[in-house]
Design a protein around this nucleic acid. Sequence first.
DNA 1: AAGTGGTCTAGACCACTAT
DNA 2: TAGTGGTCTAGACCACTTT
Lengths: 257, 257
Amino acid sequence: MAQKPNGQILQQTASIDRSSYEPAYAQLANILRQSMAAGLLRPGNQLPSEAQICKRYGVSPMTVRRAINSLADQGIVIAEQGRGTFVKPIAMGEATFHLKKLQEILNDAEHTSVNVLEARIVRADERVARKLAIPPGQRTVYIRRILRTENLPVLYHREYLVYDPTRPIVEAELEVTALRHLFSGTGETILKHGDISLEATLLNEEEAQLLQVEQPRAAFCFEHLFYDFDNKPISWGWFIGRNDLLRFITQVGLLEG
Amino acid sequence: MAQKPNGQILQQTASIDRSSYEPAYAQLANILRQSMAAGLLRPGNQLPSEAQICKRYGVSPMTVRRAINSLADQGIVIAEQGRGTFVKPIAMGEATFHLKKLQEILNDAEHTSVNVLEARIVRADERVARKLAIPPGQRTVYIRRILRTENLPVLYHREYLVYDPTRPIVEAELEVTALRHLFSGTGETILKHGDISLEATLLNEEEAQLLQVEQPRAAFCFEHLFYDFDNKPISWGWFIGRNDLLRFITQVGLLEG
DNA sequence: AAGTGGTCTAGACCACTAT
DNA sequence: TAGTGGTCTAGACCACTTT
């Protein structure tokens, strides 16, 4: 990936506007990113050294570092101590998919409704007990919900909660807004962390009927396991999402410019 | 989310080891994160002000800012100008799934093999022409590959490339290592950016046979569309992944501690 | 030895929020 | 007005790579 640096390459580009609302480091990062998007700096090329950039744009070393750090954080550039900073080639493996899309659906209260199908206390069977790290037979709260947007069923949620009347989560979970808070992080929470996994599954008969689609049918399945501040499991469940209404998109490489 | 700050809360915690290999800002970020993981700082609580942290740990304001910025970047904390910095509650909507897992499979040359089933020049039909923004009937390179780990078929890849002998990508793509480079970002590339989408699909007969599973069967489908530095589409294709061999996992909230 | 990125200082000034 | 976070400076020293 080594290649000659090119101190001239940015000579004719824009400069920093000190009166702008946009911070200098952000402006500088954008200038550098645009140089790459325009093809002036190609994958593998070395960026001008930090000292050169300082002189060229009349900013202090810390400001340059911050700009380059932000590019490195975005995976656009890689800085190697003692060698230089280089433009990274596009890497599909760095693509990330965000559940934020899902959150947006839930936060759109105007067009979204949550419907509790069932909420009752059940004894934990073998499987539930193992997941929640409780003895088999202990009481849990079992909740089934349907989430609709524009009256179309999008998500089917099933969840087992450790039953503990002293914990506020049980009450909180029964609120229709509970899912919204869980996704957006608003409101109070006693949850410390959680594991989430994503699978592609085949809908069974019950799921297909509730989501109003025909079998056979593929769907997304998000399994989640949440822990409290004692690192004890407290909630295990999964969301089943209609594959025609849920689609995750992302981008890699250099955008705009 | 407002609450009284607590300047005392970190009094008895660890201090910064200036002789350590770990930078001061990273040590400080860890100390703060552990205070939250241990429950000393709960969701909604306000962190001590930056000035207080400076005094408490004997570091300069820039170092404190950097530590807090890193926590904010991780979504653990939220800084509000003029108000303070607060511990954020867990938010499922911030979960991200990485394709890195997929990259790791491909980079594991020891146990992974790529097998080109077909590679020939075909005329673009309506659908392909629209995706690649070329006239229908123009020549494209159509490639079908199977990717195996431990001799188990994991991914089935189909791809249409704009046919242009002057571009090196056509030759490069036919190499068995092409996929590896595409994912890891090593080697040269003329690709500027790409769009990737993730769906849950039902396998058709051909796909099921190649992936050695029985129908009906759900699978992941990654569709990708890559562009060159002129922002022209150059490659359109999709990966079909066996749902039993591919699973995406991620975590939200405060880890370890 | 020279050049590179990585960290850190001890302030300064600004914008914003609360009182 | 006082306190908060946000930005920025003009250097310093260090670790690392290359010549």
